[in-house]
């Protein structure tokens, strides 16, 4: 009886293992091996995590925000911990697009995953310049256009907070960039749906959301703000319900694929976004707490599908 039982278990395990779950999803014309990507500014160029995980297990990597010129970013202090989250004011510190293409790209181009460059700028010309240069790189199948940046020529107003300005920058980049164009939306707006529709109209192939929520924290002992810039971007588990809501709203309003992010740290979190309508997700702040978290999420998604007898992850995308 004991032996029979063992046999039965072995058989079950075998059958179980033979249930191949399809985790692969598509963003525009890019096939991701699974929906788990990493969020810009939280995963360096991927290299910083190579000691901890096999980077080829990831669906995609979105590298650091890249601008036309090298940027120093904001003065220290640039980070403050807040309940279940953190504020940052890094301010787009990066090596600039030329150094990226010349020095960084050759180091990372052969990582067996989809690598996207997060493109930032202070003017439409700068966005276009960066996008054009990235367009030349064979192993970068797409960019994520970060339109949360202030438009210096328009008095620092965020490109992403006004539908016309958002459409304008997307239209301009669309002219010069020929691969997959994901536009990353800011949550600091009255109607994220209006912005999403505007960038879809302007030629975006996909939208990702959310970027950080504008926040602020004060050190009452020292009687001053924690950040050198006074305000900064909130991220981490505390923003997740806001992000899920926005992803759900946008997924119902546009035809293009939606990439969801904001506070994801477990497979269950990722599933919330997928069910709300995201075709893929990005993991940000959670990488700081556990550099192996992305692979755990991939494994967790697989496990979930097996437990629920789902053989294709696409079957649960947008079910809410």
């Amino acid at each position: 009886m004991n032996r029979a039982h063992t046999k039965k278990v072995t058989l079950l395990v075998l059958i179980f293992n033979l249930t191949v779950v399809n985790l692969s999803t598509k963003i525009h014309n890019i096939t991701l091996k699974n929906p788990v990507m990493t969020a810009s500014g939280t995963f360096g160029y991927g290299e910083e995590f190579a000691d901890f995980i096999d980077l080829s297990r990831l669906g995609g990597i979105i590298v650091k925000g890249t601008t036309g010129e090298r940027r120093q970013g904001n003065p220290y202090p640039r980070m403050a911990e807040t309940p279940s989250g953190m504020l940052n004011a890094v301010g787009l510190q990066n090596v600039g697009v030329e150094t990226f293409c010349r020095e960084v790209y050759p180091r990372i181009k052969d990582i067996d995953t989809k690598i996207f460059v997060n493109v930032s700028g202070s003017s439409i010309e700068e966005y276009c310049h960066v996008a054009e240069m990235i367009d030349e790189l064979d192993n970068i199948p797409g960019i994520e256009l970060n339109i949360s940046c202030p438009n210096v020529k328009k008095g620092g107003m965020g490109f992403g907070t006004n539908p016309d300005m958002a459409a304008q920058v997307v239209r301009a980049v669309r002219q010069v960039y020929h691969k997959t164009l994901i536009v990353k939306l800011t949550p600091n707006v009255t109607s994220v749906v209006d912005i999403a529709k505007a960038v879809e109209q302007a030629g975006a192939d996909s939208v990702s959301l959310i970027n950080t929520l504008l926040g602020m924290a004060i050190d009452v002992e020292r009687q001053r703000p924690y950040l050198s810039t006074i305000t900064g971007g909130l991220s981490g588990p505390c923003v997740k319900p806001v992000a899920v809501r926005m992803v759900w709203q946008v997924a119902h309003a546009v035809q293009i694929p939606v990439v969801g992010l904001g506070g994801i740290s477990t497979a269950a979190d990722a599933l919330e976004f997928l069910m709300a309508g995201a075709k893929a997700i990005e993991v940000g702040t959670a990488n700081f707490l556990d550099p192996t978290v992305t692979v755990k999420i991939v494994e967790g998604l697989e496990d979930y599908c097996q437990r629920h007898h789902i053989d294709d992850i696409n079957d649960i995308i947008g079910i809410i």
Partner: peptide
């Protein structure tokens, strides 16, 4: 001993100003 978020060079939160920049 700057404030840190990741500790592994991924977030750029912990910078100090040097003669070669942050």
């Amino acid at each position: 001993e700057n404030m840190m978020a990741c500790g592994i060079g991924a977030c750029l939160c912990c910078v100090t100003d040097t003669v070669d920049g942050h």
